[in-house]
């Protein structure tokens, strides 16, 4: 099958690549760009461990082809930190014990990043709703909500 050329901006860096059409975005990120913070948990679009932000929207990178992101802007967990400074959400997960094994964390962070960009004063219900596509097997979710609330408060204060 003919390869497709794509030009894509990932975490602020331009990449040009030749990809097979069937290459999934998550494999492109993990194998081609070696950005392994984006995880694979289920293969069937259920867990959200592979969530990335494309042009401001959180989507599951296991349910997209790399060919589809030609000309688009992607943010992965590796791009959240700016100039050595953690994003408030990253701090939140850290401070509020929002992670145990950490495998779901990048997906939770990316979902939260897109969500808080549009709403820095969310209610607990809104947070639970926003994150309902992400699966965590360890934490019991309570602290993940707290981590979001922590980040929202910091963002309201102008943390970033």
């Amino acid at each position: 099958m003919a390869k497709i050329e794509i030009n894509v901006r990932v975490n602020g860096v331009e990449h040009r690549a030749e990809v097979e059409p069937r290459l999934l975005l998550v494999h492109f990120l993990r194998e081609s760009l070696r950005l392994t913070g984006t995880h694979i948990g289920c293969d069937t679009s259920h867990c959200g461990a592979c969530t990335v932000v494309i042009d401001g929207r959180a989507v599951k990178s296991c349910t997209m082809f790399a060919a589809q992101v030609d000309g688009r802007e992607i943010l992965t967990v590796e791009g959240l930190e700016r100039d050595g400074k953690l994003h408030p959400l990253q701090e939140g997960f850290f401070q509020e014990h929002g992670l145990q094994c950490g495998y779901c964390t990048p997906g939770m962070l990316m979902t939260g990043y897109a969500f808080l960009n549009g709403n820095t004063a969310p209610t607990e219900d809104e947070i639970r709703h926003a994150i309902s596509g992400n699966l965590c097997r360890c934490t019991g979710y309570v602290n993940i909500v707290k981590a979001y609330q922590y980040a929202a408060a910091r963002l309201r204060e102008g943390g970033v």
Binding site: G48, A58, V59, K60, T63, T111, G133
Partner: peptide, 8 residues
Amino acid sequence: ADPLVRNQ
């Protein structure tokens, strides 16, 4: 579905 799926 879920919010991530709905974004796409």
